[in-house]
Amino acid sequence: MPLLSVNDLVMYYKTKMGYVRAVDGINFTLDRGESLGIVGESGCGKTSISMTLLRLLPENGEFQRGHVYFDDGSGPVDLISLPEHEMRKYRWKGISMVFQAAMNSLNPVYTVGDQIVEAILNHYPDMSLDAARAKVAELFELVGLDPKRMDQYPHQYSGGMKQRAVIALALSCDPKVIIADEPTTALDVIVQDKILKEMKRIQKKLNMGMIYISHDIAVIAEVSDKIAVMYAGKFVELADSVTIFKRPRHPYTYGLMSSFPSITGEKKKLFTIPGEPPNLLNPPPGCRFAPRCPNATKQCTEEEPPFIEVEPGHFMACWNPVKREGEES
């Protein structure tokens, strides 16, 4: 069994204007030592997937259906079916998370160091305070923070320092899976590069599963073994990262990959996908990308394309995929 398998996960937000279909039939697996990148437009449902997995939904978040099997070697457990007090054992130690809202995961009234020490002692009750502090100092060095600043409060940190503190927190209990939601948006490229490399190193060393969520395809390219491209609550394409970058088939993936602003090449006209991002309150029938898709046909606006395996390990939902060079149809 894979470390994590997610089957037909569906979660909607209930609002006065109707349901926001943020997670609408998501499927994937994650093996030990594997990293999955999830990319997609702002608001397409990336954060909602991880909140559903961890069962940290807001009041109006309604779980509809699906399964999340977690197997750390002792047999698969469906996290969805667990009572809350059981589920708590899996958060942090089983699956830990670097939240997109860095500040919401730090408590403003405790020092940053104390918060990480507490997380460590919670999971390793036999560890001494000194040993825990030493571990925090090590984690600080690893994410590029000065250990001298352990005893400061979150508000004394810059945006990127808070983000790094949250990464240190997520790494502190040696989890089996880490979900990192836009973990480096506040970091300069040198610190980002260092942290992504460190995370990869730890991941391989501990054989962890990693899920990176990002809007930034360059970051995703650096860290992911395989990539899921998300559009309007659904995965539209999933494959190993080389395939996604070099031979994308779904028109949305193709659009995402074909333009990326460069800092040295010719200063080109900037790229946009024409049309408006979809409204998840009232998604169009058929393929949700149809109103913006260059390949759309009548079928696309009527029938929803199924998410199927088009070649081993390569999944896609599209009626008229982008042709590969030398291919007939």
Binding site: V39, G40, E41, S42, Q100, G159, E182, T185, A186, H215, D216, I217, G255, L256, S259, F260, P261, L270, F271, T272, I273, P277
Partner: peptide
């Protein structure tokens, strides 16, 4: 850092 969480397509619209 006004567009740090935005993908290329939406970011372009904001910059414009």
């Amino acid at each position: 850092e006004p567009t740090s969480m935005l993908d290329v397509s939406i970011r372009t619209g904001i910059m414009e």
